[in-house]
C-alpha cells in the first residue's frame, strides 16, 4: 500500500492535491482513500492531507503515522516541529520539498534518514491567484514519484477534481501538473510501499483512575495563557516597520490588528509581536504613512528586524 502525506498551510490547497492524486490512483485501478485533516487552526496554520492507494481494499483508516512519501508545498513548514512534516519518516521514505534550497542543504539541516527530493519552484505561494496551481503541482510531482500514475491519467485526474473551474484554468493546471511530473522524471518510482510489520507492539494500556473533579473538568484555571500558542507560525508574509516613515500615531496599526499583536513601547513606537502575528497584513494595508512592508517570511526570518530609533530621535518624527 502507498501511504502519502501532503503538508502545507490552511488555504494552500493540500486537500485538493490529495484528491487529485487520489483520483489519479483510482483511475489507474487502485483502491484509494484521500482525506484532509484539520483541527481548530485556520488559514495559514500547518495542516496535512493524505492518500492511501493499494491493489486490495484498504482497511486502514485515519492519519498516516509512517508514510512512504511526504510532499511539502511550503518549505517553511519543514523545520517547524508543530507541523509534523518529519514525523514517522525512515530511511525508506521519500521527502519531497517544493523549495529553492538544494537537497544537500536540507540534508544537513534536517535530522532525518529519509531520501530528500527537491521540486524546483513552479508556483509562488504568496500569490493568492496561484493557489489552485499548488495543488496540481504537488499532486503531479507525487504521481511521478510513485511511478504508478501515467501522464494521461494525471491530466484526467486534474480535470475531474477541478471541474468547477473554467477551461482555461483547468488547462493551466494540467500543464503545471505535467510540468511537475516531468521535473520528477529522474526520481520516477522511488517512493515505494514499505513492508508492514505484523508483530503487534506493546499497547501501553493503563487502567484510568478517578481524578478529582477540579482536575477532570475541561476547565482552564488561568488567564491569558494562549500566549503559549505561537500563531506566528501561520505567517507566510511578515509585516516589517520602517521606523523612518512611522509617525507613531499607533492607533491605526494598533487598533486594527485583529490579534492585538501591535503595541506601543514606552516611547510610543509600535512593535509587533512576531511570535503571534498571523501575517494578515491589515497593518500594511492600513498604515497611512506606508511605514510597514510585507516581507516573505522565509526571507525575513534570516534578517535582523529594524528596531525603533532611540527616544532622542523623537523630534524627527513628523
Amino acid at each position: 500500500m502507498y501511504r502519502i502525506r501532503f503538508h502545507g498551510r490552511g488555504g494552500q490547497g493540500m486537500k485538493t492535491a490529495s484528491r487529485i492524486l487520489g483520483a489519479a490512483f483510482f483511475l489507474e485501478g487502485f483502491e484509494v482513500q484521500d482525506a484532509p485533516r484539520y483541527g481548530a487552526e485556520r488559514r495559514g496554520a500547518p495542516i496535512f492531507a493524505f492518500v492511501r492507494a493499494d491493489r486490495s481494499p484498504i482497511l486502514e483508516r485515519g492519519v498516516i503515522p509512517n508514510p512512504d512519501l511526504v510532499m511539502v508545498a511550503d518549505d517553511t513548514l519543514v523545520g517547524m516541529p508543530q507541523a509534523g512534516v518529519l514525523q514517522g519518516l525512515n530511511a525508506h521514505a521519500v521527502l519531497a520539498i517544493h523549495s529553492t534550497t538544494p537537497a544537500g542543504e536540507w540534508r544537513q539541516r534536517l535530522n532525518t534518514d529519509a531520501r530528500i527530493v527537491i521540486l524546483p519552484p513552479l508556483f509562488d505561494l504568496l500569490d493568492a491567484a496561484q493557489r489552485v496551481r499548488v495543488s496540481a503541482v504537488i499532486a503531479g510531482a507525487a504521481a511521478c514519484l510513485t511511478g504508478r500514475v501515467g501522464r494521461d491519467t494525471l491530466s484526467q485526474a486534474v480535470r475531474t477534481e477541478l471541474a468547477d473551474l473554467t477551461n482555461t484554468v483547468i488547462k493551466d493546471n494540467i500543464n503545471k501538473a505535467l510540468q511537475a511530473y516531468d521535473e520528477m522524471n529522474e526520481f520516477k518510482g522511488i517512493a515505494e510501499p514499505q513492508p508492514r510489520t505484523d508483530t503487534p507492539l506493546p499497547t501501553g494500556w493503563i487502567t484510568l483512575g478517578l481524578d478529582p473533579a477540579t482536575l477532570a473538568a475541561p476547565a482552564i484555571h488561568a488567564a491569558a495563557n494562549s500566549v503559549q500558542v505561537r500563531t506566528g507560525l501561520w505567517r507566510t508574509l511578515r509585516p516589517v516597520f520602517d521606523y523612518s516613515h512611522c509617525n507613531r500615531c499607533n492607533w491605526v496599526c494598533g487598533s486594527f490588528c485583529p490579534d492585538g499583536v501591535v503595541s506601543a513601547d514606552e516611547n510610543g513606537w509600535p512593535r509587533i509581536d512576531y511570535d503571534h502575528c498571523k501575517g494578515c497584513m491589515v497593518c500594511v494595508a492600513q498604515c497611512p504613512k506606508h511605514a510597514i512592508q510585507g516581507m516573505p517570511e522565509g526571507w525575513a526570518a534570516q534578517q535582523t528586524m529594524p528596531t525603533p530609533p532611540s527616544p532622542d530621535r523623537k523630534e524627527a518624527a513628523p
Binding site: 481548530a40 483512575g209 475541561p218 476547565a219 482552564i220 484555571h221 488561568a222
Partner: peptide, 24 residues
C-alpha cells in the same frame, strides 16, 4: 479567572474527560 467547558480537540484528551465523568 477560569475558562470553563472549553473545546477539547483530539481523541486522547476527549476520552479522558468523558471517562472521568463515567468514573465519577
Amino acid at each position: 479567572p477560569v475558562s470553563a467547558a472549553v473545546a477539547v480537540l483530539g481523541g486522547g484528551p476527549y476520552s479522558y474527560f468523558r471517562y472521568q465523568t463515567h468514573l465519577a
